[in-house]
């Protein structure tokens, strides 16, 4: 069984937010009204976080970090879910079962990365957006929690295609949208159990670190520090 992981190289990352946009389009993440966005209800599965500011005004250099779901091996969200609406798959992906969620938001309260987003209400989407909905991903109703799933629908499509072609899933068959779209190839993705995989090599780099690793959540998304 593979174990999917991701390494994001902050040295290569230019904070262009292509991953953020690609994720939003790929997963039919709801676009909220301006008022709601002002009130902190904007929905992002992949989000560009400003970690700190270097230097003094006006020579400020913000240090940013693209943050999706960390796909923890010891996920605190699963521990507290009262209805099994989120679970850890054998391939390491922390998946969501949208029709099961009752919207208690306990997982949101317990996620140390504040990854989960809630559908506070369901708003009418722009016509262009509705026309370009991804048919592989369900449109979530109001009142439930959602989050990045490593584009799990792509895994399904890829493995079905491989099965139809009577072969095993090969590296590169399945990549999430953010990885595919990154213009500088800052994100590497693959099987952490595969010794030859690029992502395993990257995750063992001396620059590699996991976000809030000290909490024992064992995140499978790791970062490479920017070179000075």
């Amino acid at each position: 069984m593979p174990k999917y992981g991701m390494v994001i190289d902050l040295d290569k990352c230019t904070s262009c937010q292509a991953c953020v946009t690609a994720c939003k389009v790929e997963n039919n993440v709801q676009i909220v009204s301006e008022d709601d966005a002002q009130n902190g209800r904007a929905m992002f599965w992949m989000k560009m976080l400003t970690m700190e500011f270097d230097g003094d005004y006006p020579n400020i250099r913000p240090k940013t970090l693209p943050r999706n779901c960390m796909q923890c091996d010891e996920p605190s969200c699963i521990k507290v879910c009262p209805v099994r609406a989120t679970y850890l798959r054998d391939d390491g992906i922390v998946a969501q079962i949208y029709p099961q969620c009752i919207g208690c938001r306990y997982c949101m309260a317990n996620c140390p990365y504040t990854v989960k987003v809630f559908n506070w209400d369901r708003q009418e989407q722009p016509a262009e957006v509705e026309r370009t909905y991804n048919p592989d991903v369900s449109v979530r109703p109001k009142g439930i929690v959602e989050k990045c799933t490593f584009c799990i629908h792509r895994l399904q499509t890829a493995s079905e295609k491989a099965k139809a072609e009577h072969r095993d899933l090969e590296p590169g068959d399945y990549v999430p949208a953010c990885v595919e779209v990154c213009p500088v190839d800052a994100i590497s993705f693959g099987d952490l159990d595969d010794r030859k995989s690029e992502v395993l090599k990257a995750s063992r780099d001396y620059r590699a670190f996991g976000l809030l690793e000290e909490l024992g959540t064992v995140p499978k998304v790791r970062y490479l520090n920017a070179k000075e």
Partner: peptide, 13 residues
């Protein structure tokens, strides 16, 4: 929906 409340992203309870 819960949009009728004043809750938002980090303050979800």
């Amino acid at each position: 929906g819960l949009g009728a409340t004043g809750m938002d992203e980090p303050v979800s309870w």
